[in-house]
Simulated assay, not measured.
Amino acid sequence: MTPGIEQALAHDRVIDITTIGRKTGEARRIEIWFHRIDGRYYITGTPGARSWYANLLVNPDFTFHLKESTQADLAAHATPVEGPEKQRVLEAIVASIASSRLTLDADTSPLVEVTWADAA
Rank of each mutant, 00 (worst) to 15 (best):
R50Q: 07
F34C: 06
S100R: 15
E82T: 04
S99M: 11
L66Q: 01
T79W: 13
A54M: 12
I17Y: 02
F64M: 01
T46M: 10
E6C: 09
A98S: 12
A49C: 07
E26M: 04
P3Q: 08
R22Y: 01
W116P: 05
G48V: 10
A72Y: 06
V89L: 03
F64H: 06
L104Y: 14
P80H: 08
N59V: 06
T108S: 07
E31V: 06
L90C: 02
V14R: 07
G25H: 03
Y42A: 03
V112N: 11
I93P: 00
R13P: 04
F34L: 08
L74S: 13
D107A: 15
F64W: 12
P47M: 03
W33R: 09
V94I: 09
A119Q: 05
T2H: 10
H77I: 13
I43A: 01
I37T: 09
A98Q: 14
L104W: 08
I15L: 08
G83N: 01
H65F: 03
N59W: 05
P110G: 13
Q71T: 11
G83Q: 06
A120K: 05
I30T: 03
A76V: 13
W33G: 05
L57R: 14
P47C: 07
A8P: 09
R29K: 04
R29S: 04
H11W: 07
G21M: 12
A120R: 08
Y41C: 04
A106R: 14
V94G: 10
L74D: 13
E85I: 00
A54G: 10
G39E: 03
P60S: 03
E6H: 13
A10H: 12
T63L: 07
N59G: 09
Y53G: 00
Q87T: 15
E31C: 09
E85P: 12
I37C: 10
E6V: 05
D16C: 05
H11A: 08
G21E: 07
A119G: 04
Q71I: 12
D73N: 15
T19P: 01
I37S: 05
L74W: 12
A95W: 06
H65Q: 00
L66D: 01
V114L: 06
L57S: 05
L104C: 07
T2F: 04
A75H: 12
I93T: 02
E91G: 08
W52Y: 01
D107N: 07
H35G: 14
P84C: 04
G45Y: 01
I37D: 09
L9Q: 06
H65V: 01
D38R: 15
S51I: 07
L102T: 07
I15Y: 02
A106D: 06
A95G: 04
T115I: 09
L56R: 11
V81I: 11
R13D: 10
A8K: 10
I20Q: 10
F34G: 05
G4P: 15
V89F: 05
R22Q: 09
L111T: 01
I43K: 00
T19K: 12
A117W: 08
R88C: 00
V94A: 13
E26R: 14
T70G: 11
I93H: 03
E26G: 02
